[in-house]
Simulated assay, not measured.
Amino acid sequence: MQSLLLRASQRAFVVATRAPRTTLPRATAPRQRYLHNTVPRRAQSSPKACPVCTQPLPGPVPACTKCWNIFALPADVSHHELLGLDYDPNPFVVDLPTLKKRFRDAQSICHPDSWASKNPSQKDVAQALSARVNHAYQTLLNPLPRAEYILERNGVHISEVDQAQDMMFMAEIMEARETIDDAENPEEVRALLEENEDKISATVKELESLFKDRDYASAKAATIRLRYLQGIHRAAKRWLDNH
């Protein structure tokens, strides 16, 4: 294990994700930097009634099927609000069947095909709105982009070169990567994949608790770990597909 730790330090902790070699960033700032004192700016709200005919809109998407007018969405409307999901008390906890239903409902209203016979400006708005709905759905559907999105909304940025600071964890990641690279037996890779999936599940559970407590510094560290674990998941799946 000691030799693994040394090799992890020498290789700058980048084997798992195949990221470019970079100098290790400074250690994560103290928890109190992000804990409770970073308040996201208040988001604008999507209109609840049509600005033209004043009839209630069928959902959070600003498109009226009564008078057939569609409107641009305020830039800061959150993904949760756009898809009619609760942000509080825990934005990381998303019910996937509800998310998928809200996505289908939203797209049925704003999809460009529904506005094909309208004037060109309305179709352009529908295309932009449909793309935004799709982006919100894809972001909230999977734990990693969901965690990154919530952190960004709370002033905590994760860059592509951010790396885990836990050397024991990085040694495990390197060992898993080398197991995949040197594997000859599919059962060996399947066992590693199953173990890695357990780690992913545990990290997702950890993130649920951290976001509930608004501990964004620790949530950032857990999100970075999740990024590495998903990298191992993809590598193992790719190996199995090719063998």
Rank of each mutant, 00 (worst) to 15 (best):
L210Q: 05
C64A: 09
R146T: 01
E188N: 11
P40F: 06
T17L: 10
T65D: 12
E187S: 08
K48I: 05
L5I: 15
A63C: 08
S45G: 06
L82A: 02
R104Q: 08
T203S: 05
P89R: 04
T98G: 06
E188P: 00
Q32H: 08
F211M: 07
R102P: 04
D95M: 02
V204R: 08
E152K: 09
E172M: 12
E208N: 08
P47L: 01
E160G: 07
R18Q: 12
R26T: 14
S108R: 05
T179C: 12
S130H: 09
L24K: 03
F92E: 04
S45E: 06
R132L: 02
A131N: 13
E175L: 14
K118A: 13
D113S: 14
Y149C: 01
D105H: 03
A147K: 01
R234M: 11
I224H: 01
V77N: 02
V204L: 06
R190A: 12
A49G: 07
G59M: 08
S78C: 00
H111F: 03
V39R: 14
F211Y: 08
V39H: 13
Q138M: 10
Q107D: 02
L83A: 01
K101Q: 13
R214Q: 09
A63H: 05
L151Q: 04
L151C: 01
L83P: 02
C53V: 04
L4S: 10
Q138H: 14
Q127K: 13
L144K: 01
N37D: 10
K48D: 04
N37F: 13
L5N: 11
E172H: 14
Q138F: 11
A8C: 15
L151M: 00
E178D: 14
T54R: 03
M170L: 09
M170S: 01
L73A: 05
S114N: 14
I200D: 07
L82F: 03
A43P: 12
R214S: 06
D113C: 07
L141Y: 08
P47I: 04
D86V: 12
E81V: 05
F13S: 09
D76M: 00
L229T: 03
P30G: 13
T223M: 12
G84Y: 10
M1G: 15
Y149F: 03
S45R: 06
G59R: 11
R18N: 11
L73C: 02
R153T: 02
Q10H: 10
D86R: 11
I180D: 07
R33F: 10
A106R: 04
I173M: 15
A236E: 07
V161I: 15
A191T: 10
N37H: 14
A8Q: 14
A136G: 06
D162Q: 06
M167T: 15
A63P: 10
L141F: 12
K100L: 04
R238C: 00
R234H: 12
A27N: 08
P47G: 10
M1V: 11
A116P: 00
I232W: 01
E184N: 12
R102F: 03
K48Q: 12
L141V: 11
I158H: 09
E178W: 03
